[in-house]
């Protein structure tokens, strides 16, 4: 039970894919023109993440190490296809606005990252919750960006007009259109990441560490998805060197 809570917390707060790990930036920037699109994209990814983590964890002792990446991709692609058909069949409007980004979930680095760094090494139940935590963290990030962009760019939240628009002669909100266009995604993402860092720094100063930037500091290399981390690579290099000896 403890492990489950820890995994959820890790995905949503400690290693939030959008604000901390900076993974999956392509859909993050492209589809968050509205809160609904962000939520839809996040939840689709969550479903794929949970299912692929589940299956990969089940098969982790069967998949040969050398062909693990193609094997992961086949599993992920199957679930993405299922999700794509379901969205197309039941929420056609969301399918129309997400477009190519649903099939592109296959190459979303969060999914392959979690498969590689967590699900392929850990038992089934923690893997499911790892996928759920990461997926919800991603959904949270996308929805937050979507909400900010929708308010500033259209005066709406989830399609409902919250700021009355200015009409001829009537005072009201004039939408700042740039926020629903591509540059706005960069502005909002940067501002939110900066805000998260401020909150983190403030908490650190008070002595309440919300979370270290990555799992490195706790020595938790197993669950860490930062492939380029120097500490991890040196560990790997050491083990390789030992094998060669």
């Amino acid at each position: 039970m403890n492990k489950i809570v820890e995994r959820l917390q890790n995905g949503i707060i400690k290693e939030n894919p959008t604000f901390v790990l900076m993974l999956g930036m392509c859909p993050t920037l492209a589809v968050t023109t509205s809160a609904m699109n962000g939520l839809g994209m996040g939840l689709s990814t969550t479903v794929v993440l949970v299912m692929s983590n589940l299956l990969i964890s089940l098969l982790r002792n069967i998949i040969p190490d050398r062909v693990r990446v193609p094997a992961f991709i086949v599993i992920v692609a199957s679930f993405v296809t299922i999700v794509q058909f379901l969205v197309q069949g039941f929420i056609p409007s969301l399918y129309a606005s997400l477009g190519i980004y649903i099939p592109l979930i296959v190459v979303n680095c969060i999914i392959l990252g979690r498969a590689e760094s967590y699900a392929s090494k850990n038992p089934v139940v923690p893997s499911i919750f790892d996928g759920l935590g990461m997926g919800l963290g991603f959904t949270l990030g996308l929805t937050l960006i979507g909400i900010v962009r929708e308010i500033l760019g259209a005066g709406q939240i989830f399609g409902a007009q919250v700021l009355p628009l200015a009409d001829a002669g009537k005072a009201g909100y004039t939408p700042i259109t740039i926020f629903v266009l591509a540059p706005g995604a960069f502005f909002v993402l940067a501002a939110l990441v900066a805000l998260m860092n401020v909150i983190r720094a403030k908490a650190d100063a008070k002595g309440k560490t919300i979370a270290p930037a990555t799992g490195c500091f706790a020595g938790d290399c197993e669950s860490c998805s930062m492939g380029s981390c120097s500490g991890k690579s040196s560990v790997k290099a050491d083990s390789v060197a030992k094998e060669e000896e």
Partner: peptide, 8 residues
């Protein structure tokens, strides 16, 4: 350019 895009 920011204004031109935002408030065309």
């Amino acid at each position: 350019c920011f204004l031109l895009i935002s408030f065309t």
